[in-house]
């Protein structure tokens, strides 16, 4: 009986830790997604590029430096977070006027794609995304 109680306690600790960890990760992803829009809205291309994934920076900076190019991508103005989903190394943040996809990197979440509009049964069409 004592062993069963210990196992139940261990499971609860694990479950609560798991839930709070998911909650923290969702909050962090939402914060990065809103920071991207705020940076672009403020005309701070360097700050926006600093939170893009390396592959996305490369793609954005194809013709001109990333800090200038990102400001020309017609990203929507900052909005409120509607829903955040985190699964493993990926996150999706749905904002009032945009959907942002993020990947997990050693320093935290980075934006892989933004300015995304849904396509029926197909991947989102994004104005900012990696190759």
């Amino acid at each position: 009986m004592i062993r069963l109680r210990c196992l139940t306690a261990a499971f609860l600790v694990w479950a609560v830790a798991g839930c709070s960890s998911v909650g923290d990760r969702e909050a962090a992803a939402s914060e990065v997604a809103t920071r991207l829009h705020a940076a672009v809205d403020a005309g701070d291309g360097a700050a926006a590029c600093a939170i893009l994934a390396p592959g996305t920076v490369e793609s954005v900076a194809e013709d001109e430096p990333c800090p200038e190019a990102i400001l020309d991508k017609d990203l929507p103005r900052p909005g409120t977070v509607v829903e955040t989903s985190v699964y493993g190394q990926w996150a999706q943040v749905k904002l009032s006027d945009d959907t942002v996809f993020l990947g997990a990197f050693p320093g935290g979440w980075r934006v892989v794609a933004a300015g995304c509009t849904p396509q029926a049964s197909r991947p989102y069409d994004c104005t900012v995304q990696g190759e």
Binding site: S85, Y87, G88, Q89, P118, Y124
Partner: peptide
């Protein structure tokens, strides 16, 4: 996780 990596909804 795979859906998100392919820029699709979960």
């Amino acid at each position: 996780e795979e859906q998100l990596s392919e820029l699709q909804d979960p």
